[in-house]
Design a protein around this nucleic acid. Structure first.
Lengths: 188, 188
DNA sequence: CGGGCCTTTGACTGGTTTCAACTTCTGTGG
DNA sequence: CCACAGAAGTTGAAACCAGTCAAAGGCCCG
């Protein structure tokens, strides 16, 4: 819980009353590896803030293949903004990659908190601006690097994370096949 | 100007005083085809809202090739959120594809407006959440479709836009070469 | 210790890029 | 208003990056 408050305070300032309100409105939840937070076809009704472990968001494409969209690790927010705002069924699934601890913020609870702590509006804005910027950079890397370069670049940025997740998820996240990732690694 | 106010009111409500304040704080600007709003190496200091025409944001990659990142047409916000928030130099360039009309909101002006019209904070949050969601869907399409499928899909969604921009920009946006786009089109 | 999931390896295939030459379009100055 | 230069689009041949498929090996968890 202090983790979320610390993250918020990197962006906006909270007084003690705000912190108390957050602490009593929200709680840490746990989920086991392979369990789901969201399944395609259901409306996404919460924001999820990961405090420990790893979540993933994926979509099943027209060929029936699971396509990784996003990982969520420590201090990351994960949700389907589209479904959340439109209240339409989500196309995504959200599943735990490892046993994971997270804070769930239901849309309705978020609304209350935004009323009572107006600077949270700014916090969530800054978070989604950052996520958007990061995803544009990801698109840049996808187009500007070959698949092997992409892997090596990602491996340099997050060497520990690469060791931590199954290769087939990483391969999907980077946009190629697990076989190809295996061949890259065999090289050296 | 009414265009921006209408767009804001799709997300939050404004009273007459708010509208008046927006109208006197902001103004329509024009830029000619090929002119720049932002060049790599400079700090991005504004949000740009396109009311007419077309802007593009691109990055020059390690091989010296211009890589399209984003188009901005009617009712789209375009900016480098990374540079804007961190005040670090941008890696991106922003250039007019056609003669374009837009509303510039400088970061400092935005701060004032956010003070005076608090619900704008929510508006900008919703806009960036939407943009983020759209860019995740774009990543999904990139990975799940072949390049030819990507073009046909995009062509179905935005047939008029495809006619409007130079093919080499569209090819770059979709992540392949102009020659390949030419061949796809020749097929049928 | 067994079964299923994950990873590895190799041969074959094909979608896409690269390069170069040629054609068409566009805009600018005479 | 035409001419011309540079930019944009087309076409084909050759090369290659990465996918597919199949079979074998490793490893985790019940």
């Amino acid at each position: 819980m202090e983790q979320l408050i610390a993250h918020i305070q990197k962006h906006v300032t909270l007084n003690d009353a705000d912190k108390a309100l957050l602490t009593c409105s929200l709680s840490i939840q746990k989920i086991n590896k392979k369990e789901f937070l969201l399944k395609a076809g259901h409306v996404c009704k919460s924001y999820y803030f990961v405090t420990k472990g790893c979540l993933r968001m994926y979509i099943v494409n027209a060929k029936g293949v699971e396509q990784m969209i996003q990982f969520g690790i420590d201090n990351w927010w994960l949700t389907d903004y589209m479904s959340l705002n439109s209240k339409q069924p989500s196309q995504f699934c959200m599943q735990a990659v490892e046993d994971t601890e997270f804070i769930e913020v239901e849309r309705t609870v978020q609304e209350e908190l935004l009323q009572k702590i107006p600077q949270l509006e700014r916090y969530f804005r800054l978070v989604s601006e950052k996520s958007y910027a990061a995803s544009l950079m990801r698109i840049h890397y996808i187009f500007s690097f070959s698949k092997e370069e992409r892997y090596r670049h990602f491996n340099n940025l997050y060497p520990d994370f690469v060791q931590r997740v199954p290769q087939y998820l990483l391969a999907s996240y980077l946009g190629f096949t697990p076989e190809f990732l295996s061949k890259i690694r065999a090289k050296k």
